[in-house]
Design a protein around this nucleic acid. Structure first.
Lengths: 204, 204
DNA sequence: GTCTATAACTCGATAGAC
DNA sequence: GTCTATCGAGTTATAGAC
């Protein structure tokens, strides 16, 4: 029997297990024993492959941050008009978060815990995403395509409405009485609702 | 010398210290030693007054959740029109969060970690806030005061835009290049910006 | 009520057999 | 490469003096 995908070697099993445990419990809450159990191996092997807990955590965090910070630059640089870009961003970003619902809380907890560490290790030589976005908004205002709006607030509003529902999911399910299936449908709607809400607010 | 405010007894010092430490580090990250140091007393006294770490945490969480879940019902029940209610809510809620910036991440981490525990202990016999909000929105749509919108998305959008900036603060400061003073001004603006953004989107 | 000292336990990390 | 056994640091919690 030939293995098509090499996803069951020990390091791969460990990384998959570590991702699951760290994302749901965070650095401080996760136990090396939890990860070993999840991977179906024992603690010593974790240290054999990944030196210590911090190294293992950094691999997971590095990987997660690559997913979390979207390749928004290519959307902004594209030929599409602003409204199409907003629609595309909301749809694709919410879709990615739907597949990685623990990502936002995980990333934001770590950045809050160690902002300087994050800035040094993960925010060097990044695309100036916000500046590009801001420049495009200013241009659209100048050309009278949209109402005058503050780009910073617009950007934060968009990001907030995309991300927050995943952070607040359990709370919102209690408040609204939704079950898992209803919540899934709710998120499905948001892939278009959020962009529409923004466009209604800024269009002339 | 007469003590006007009894805020320096041991239990009070402990609660103040525990709030500070738990809100910034969370349950798993906080150390009883940190709390004792912050309160200027020793560890044994924590246990003398509050039995164990979990009991102390629950007192802080219970107190924090009372702040976090706004008395929105009285705003909804008031005579003001919908737009004034939205303005009032955003202004007052953002203002409260400005004074308690760690509150959202603290509450949401705990609810995510133990949703059932939260529901049992802290969500019994609560006002059906969302239902009231939803009913009012439906009424306004019927009376053709606002465009047809889905109340659930409108509610989540409003909450998202109020709360998320505090969860994402350190990240946003890195991305935007703001310093503390600029961020404070940014939040000050949001007290009116968020409501305006919503109203622009739903008004006829 | 407050302290010092220490017990009891959890957990990350290592040694060493196979 | 993988395991069992164990060490040692760090933490919660308690005992007991004052």
């Amino acid at each position: 029997m030939v293995k098509i995908l090499q996803n069951d070697t020990s390091p791969e099993k460990i990384l998959a297990a570590a991702k699951k445990v760290f994302l749901s419990k965070g650095m401080a809450g996760a136990r090396m024993q939890d990860i070993a159990d999840e991977a179906g191996i024992n603690k010593a092997l974790l240290h054999y492959y990944f030196k210590d807990k911090e190294k293992l955590f950094e691999m997971i965090f590095s990987d997660a941050s690559k997913q979390f910070f979207p390749k928004i630059a290519e959307i902004i640089d594209s030929k599409a008009n602003l409204f199409e870009k907003i629609e595309k961003f909301c749809r694709e970003y919410i879709d990615m978060l739907q597949q990685n619902p623990y990502l936002p809380l995980f990333i934001l907890n770590e950045v809050n815990a160690q902002p300087l560490n994050f800035k040094e290790k993960f925010w060097k030589n990044r695309e100036p995403v916000f500046l590009k976005f801001s420049a495009q908004i200013d241009k659209e205002i100048k050309n009278k395509k949209i109402k005058p709006v503050n780009p910073a607030h617009l950007f934060v509003n968009m990001i907030s409405m995309c991300i927050f529902p995943f952070i607040g999911k359990p709370l919102w399910m209690i408040v609204s009485g939704m079950d898992e299936i209803q919540f899934r449908y709710f998120i499905e709607q948001r892939k278009t609702e959020v962009a529409q809400f923004i466009i209604e607010s800024i269009k002339k």
